[in-house]
């Protein structure tokens, strides 16, 4: 997005030396052309081509084979489990994200910076390690393992483990979008509402929520995309039981390793569509609400 310099620069008049003024702070046309071409070729070959190839490979066996891949019971079970996992993980992280942003943005307290760093922690933990930490606690040889076995509760190699690992991986997504946004907005609106007699909840629902809704949507989109697509962490805790503990990404891996390439890419194309949808909505939100999100982007 270009910066609008119309207010900074003098008005453009037919004979004024504006062209020369700008000429000293930009490159010669051939340099500009070369750099742009390089960047676009790189983006196309490195980012766009993989995306295109997913759809091409998925449709290689024909439309019939493409849709047949989704009719398989294992594929359906994987899709269901993925939806279920996201349906649990995203709302929990949403509540947490709002609480964290409220506490951090509206109040001053000691250790705030440390808290922000700790919230970011899952970003720098390898997904595989994220899965491992739950195996160490809840696994058969883990600390809680014997107790869980005695009470016939299964967490690892079962759905609760998959949900836990997904929550860990997507933990910071919504909080991270909301914290800078709410910090930027300050607390004047809320104070005004409270002084006019609104209760805390009323203030939140009628004042704060409308103020942050686009940032919130943006965070939920990213969180959801990651929750549905998580592979490493889920792969450690899932046990890969077909039809039971396989999410869509794990199902893709199994199909791929069995050389069922078309089916693997067909399931992959669903997740790729989700990614496209996420990016499309994100672009729309950014385009229509650039001001509100500016605070987030600067972060």
């Amino acid at each position: 997005m270009s910066v609008d310099h119309s207010l900074l620069d003098p008005p453009k008049l037919p004979f004024e030396p504006l062209i020369e003024r700008n000429a000293v702070i930009t490159e010669q046309p051939w340099v500009r052309w070369l750099l742009t071409a390089l960047a676009l070729v790189f983006l196309s070959a490195f980012l766009l081509l993989p995306l295109v190839s997913v759809f091409v490979e998925a449709l290689r066996g024909g439309v019939h084979a493409y849709f047949a891949a989704f009719k398989e019971p294992d594929a359906l079970a994987a899709i269901k489990l993925t939806l279920l996992t996201a349906a649990i993980a995203v709302p929990l992280n949403l509540v947490f994200g709002i609480c964290a942003a409220w506490a951090i943005a509206k109040f001053e307290f000691r250790g705030k910076q440390i808290l922000i760093t700790l919230i970011d922690l899952p970003f720098s933990v390898s997904p595989v390690v994220a899965g491992l930490i739950y195996v160490i606690i809840f696994g058969a040889q883990g600390w809680a393992g014997p107790w869980l076995a005695a009470h016939d509760i299964k967490i690892i190699f079962a759905v609760p483990g998959i949900v836990l690992a997904t929550i860990f991986i997507t933990f910071p997504f919504i909080a991270r979008e909301l914290i800078p946004l709410m910090q930027e907005q300050g607390q004047d609106d809320e104070q005004a509402a409270l002084s006019l007699g609104a209760s805390g909840w009323q203030t939140f629902w009628n004042i704060t929520l409308p103020n942050i809704r686009w940032g919130l949507l943006y965070g939920v989109l990213l969180c959801n995309a990651r929750a549905m697509g998580e592979f490493g962490a889920v792969s450690v805790v899932s046990g890969h039981i077909r039809g039971k503990t396989n999410t869509m990404p794990l199902h893709i891996e199994i199909l791929y390793n069995e050389y069922a390439f078309s089916a693997a890419f067909a399931v992959a194309s669903l997740l790729a569509l989700l990614a496209l949808l996420t990016l499309g909505l994100k672009a729309l939100v950014e385009w229509r609400h650039a001001d509100e999100l500016a605070a987030t982007r600067r972060h």
Binding site: L51, A225, P249, A268, L271, L279
Partner: peptide
Amino acid sequence: FDSTIDLPFALPTAV
């Protein structure tokens, strides 16, 4: 093109 830059964030790693 600006939207595609974020593709690696949104595209699941297995895909």
